[in-house]
């Protein structure tokens, strides 16, 4: 074309445009879009991983809080149970102690009664024994000595017995 500065040719401009349009389309379809899709997919993948990790972390924190709460409740329960049991044990101990005291007093009282009874029996037996001894001695005196002597001896024996 004459008269156009720098030999600008509109037909060649359109040919350049046609060439670039094809290039643009091809590059977009073959290179730009797949690579960008891949990059976005990877970003989404890591974002997903991140959100899952955050979710898991939140769940773990929640579980930890729940566990700590349960542990605290359990500790409180154990403490209350311990208190209750120790009170029960104390009461049982008091009850048993009282029972033991009662039994001991009964044993002591029975023992006393038994001891009194035995004492009385011993005294009674001793008296009987003394009486027997005196009788024996009298019989011996009667058989071995004269009547006076026997009488004196009887008196001596009586005196000794009184002592």
């Amino acid at each position: 074309m004459t008269g156009v500065p720098l030999n600008i040719d509109w037909q060649q401009i359109l040919l350049h445009l046609f060439n670039f349009t094809i290039l643009f389309g091809a590059l977009y379809i073959l290179l730009y879009k797949p690579v960008k899709n891949f990059m976005e997919g990877r970003e989404a993948h890591y974002a997903d991983m991140d959100s899952k990790a955050n979710q898991a972390l939140a769940d773990a924190e929640s579980s930890k809080a729940s566990y700590e709460e349960k542990e605290k409740a359990f500790d409180d329960e154990v403490r209350a149970e311990k208190t209750r049991l120790s009170k029960e044990i104390e009461a049982e101990r008091e009850r048993r102690l009282a029972a033991a005291r009662g039994e001991a007093e009964k044993i002591i009282s029975d023992a006393r009664v038994e001891a009194d009874r035995e004492k009385n029996e011993i005294i009674e037996s001793a008296q009987k024994e003394i009486t027997g001894m005196v009788t024996d001695a009298m019989e011996k005196l009667t058989l071995e000595q004269t009547a006076s002597d026997a009488f004196d001896q009887f008196l001596d024996a009586a005196e000794e017995a009184d002592k």
């Binding site: 030999n7 600008i8 401009i13 359109l14 350049h16 670039f20």
Partner: peptide, 14 residues
């Protein structure tokens, strides 16, 4: 290609 004035005009105008 863009050292050609037609190519440069195409790119600029586009």
């Amino acid at each position: 290609p863009l050292a050609d004035i037609n190519g440069a005009i195409m790119m600029g105008c586009l």
